[in-house]
């Protein structure tokens, strides 16, 4: 009886299948198109400003001439400082959560805290850093304050991705080490961590990209609109690409005249961040090769 009905919905089914496929393709193309148009827009407007001098010189003539070298250096220093802050804390927390913590109220609270922290707007981190590091601890507006603030900002990402990488390490590695008479910490340090490290670092490098692009947190804690001093002490103020763009576009005396510099700096920042992401992808691929779990 049912035999005759089996081909019944065929036409409809195919049409629906095609429609869904089309829709999904469209969304994928759209995502790519947004990305491409941002890049294109920046390339068209920023590329003319970029030359060797732009990358290697200090700004001159109220920022209308010269380059963005101090801002590039500042951004790199701040991002690395953030990573140095977030990695010990984040990896430590991840090892605790993934390896030691027994499921319970405390652990649920910690996880809830971590994921909530990830949702806090970055400007709030900026205010927090201002009141804690800059004022209370007396670090002033400095590389130190900015790095700590950005470090806290990326802490949830670093923690979550490190925990995920640890969880993906097969249980059998731990068992094998323990069965050979390793202590818990020996098993983690000698077997689990080496296996999980590529994944843990990938997450951290992606977070590093985020830290490099942030504006609000460092506006309060680290960024100078203009300084000639090199970043030779962690208590120095620095320029940064993101705040440099913001300042040129909103606060400077020659907003229109510095448009090329603004776009140029934006392009440099984007390339820097994309470069970091690429770097993360490359080491992940490299370290993943030859392992099968």
């Amino acid at each position: 009886m049912l035999e005759a009905r089996k081909g019944h919905t065929r036409q409809n089914r195919r049409r629906r299948e095609r429609a869904v496929l089309l829709f999904i393709r469209l969304t994928a193309v759209l995502a790519l198109a947004v990305m491409a148009s941002i890049l294109l827009y920046l390339l068209i407007n920023g590329l003319p400003a970029i030359n060797l001098a732009f990358l290697t010189e200090f700004p001159r003539d109220s920022m209308q001439k010269g380059g963005v070298l101090p801002a590039i250096l500042g951004t790199v220093v701040l991002a690395l400082g953030a990573l140095l802050t977030a990695i010990p804390l984040g990896f430590g927390a991840a090892v605790y959560l993934a390896e030691y913590a027994r499921p319970g109220v405390l652990v649920s609270f910690i996880r809830l805290g971590v994921s909530n922290l990830a949702g806090v707007p970055s400007v709030v981190f900026g205010l927090f850093g201002l009141s804690l590091f800059v004022t209370t601890f007396g670090f002033g507006r400095s590389i130190l304050s900015g790095s700590l603030t950005l470090g806290l900002l990326i802490l949830p990402t670093v923690t979550a991705s490190a925990e995920e990488a640890l969880r993906q390490t097969p249980q059998s590695f731990r068992e094998a080490a323990l069965a050979l008479g390793a202590s818990r910490w020996q098993a983690i340090r000698q077997v689990v961590l080496p296996a999980a490290l590529p994944g843990m670092l990938t997450g951290s490098i992606l977070a590093l990209g985020r830290a490099a692009g942030e504006t609000a947190p460092i506006m309060f804690t680290a960024a100078a609109a203009y300084t000639l001093a090199p970043p030779d002490s962690i208590f120095r103020e620095v320029m940064a690409l993101s705040t440099h763009i913001y300042n040129l576009a909103t606060n400077s005396t020659h907003i229109e005249e510095t448009r090329p510099q603004q776009f140029g700096a934006a392009l440099v920042l984007l390339v820097l961040v994309l470069g970091l992401s690429m770097f993360a992808i490359v080491i992940r691929a490299k370290l993943r090769r030859g392992r099968k779990w």
């Binding site: 068992e175 094998a176 323990l178 069965a179 050979l180 390793a182 077997v191 080496p194």
Partner: peptide, 19 residues
């Protein structure tokens, strides 16, 4: 830990370390 050094174990699935 000492007991496990005296009593070896081989598991269901081969589980060599990634070394």
């Amino acid at each position: 830990v000492v007991i496990r050094r005296r009593v070896g174990m081989v598991f269901q699935r081969p589980n060599p370390f990634a070394k």
